[in-house]
């Protein structure tokens, strides 16, 4: 059972987890259970603290308590410090959790249709026609240069390095970046 309890007035601080004490188990359903320092946690969640910059480092581990609140157990500094089996398990979970289709090629962009923009794009998940409403809000370039596109349904698509795309695709995209 999930046993961790924090007292009401305890001052919270960063708890770095001892990777040698962590033991994750993957269930058939895809969920992870964890044993840490004699405590057992069911269906724990792994969260990247800075998902755009650190993929394997600074991973928060949390669980849901009886009152349905997510409680952080601690932070893994680097999953590469774990055993290969444990590292692969965490990496696979994180990959699944943060999965997002990447746009690899832009066939066409049609602008100004009732306030929508249509991108006919090739993604890592297959070809997709993406409808974007209010592109100024829904095209975002972060500090690392990654372009995030959010469509009218709220789905996200990433382009990690737009300038590394083929010239034609980049020329179509740069008008909106």
């Amino acid at each position: 059972m999930n046993e961790y309890k924090q007292t009401d007035f305890q001052i919270d601080s960063l708890r770095i987890l001892d990777v040698n004490e962590l033991h994750f188990t993957r269930l058939d359903s895809g969920y992870l259970d964890l044993e840490y320092k004699g405590n057992r946690y069911e269906q724990v969640s792994l969260t990247r603290l800075q998902p755009f910059y650190y993929l394997d480092t600074y991973i928060s581990v949390s669980f849901k308590n009886d009152e349905d609140e997510w409680i952080e157990i601690g932070v893994i500094r680097d999953i590469n410090d774990m055993s290969k089996e444990q590292r692969d398990l965490c990496a696979e979970y994180l990959q699944f959790r943060y999965y997002v289709p990447l746009i690899t090629k832009v066939h066409s962009i049609r602008d100004n249709r009732m306030g929508y923009l249509f991108i006919d794009a090739e993604t890592t998940a297959g070809r997709k026609r993406i409808a974007v409403n209010d592109w100024w809000t829904n095209f975002r370039v972060n500090n690392s240069g990654m372009l995030t596109v959010t469509d009218s349904d709220g789905n996200k698509y990433y382009i990690p390095h737009p300038e590394e795309m083929d010239r034609k695709s980049y020329r179509k995209l740069e008008l909106f970046m």
Binding site: D28, Y31, D151, D153, G154, N155, K156
Partner: peptide, 12 residues
């Protein structure tokens, strides 16, 4: 037991 039925984009 938890069974995965299908997967979808979060917009749905």
């Amino acid at each position: 037991k938890h069974v995965c039925i299908s997967r979808f984009s979060s917009g749905f």
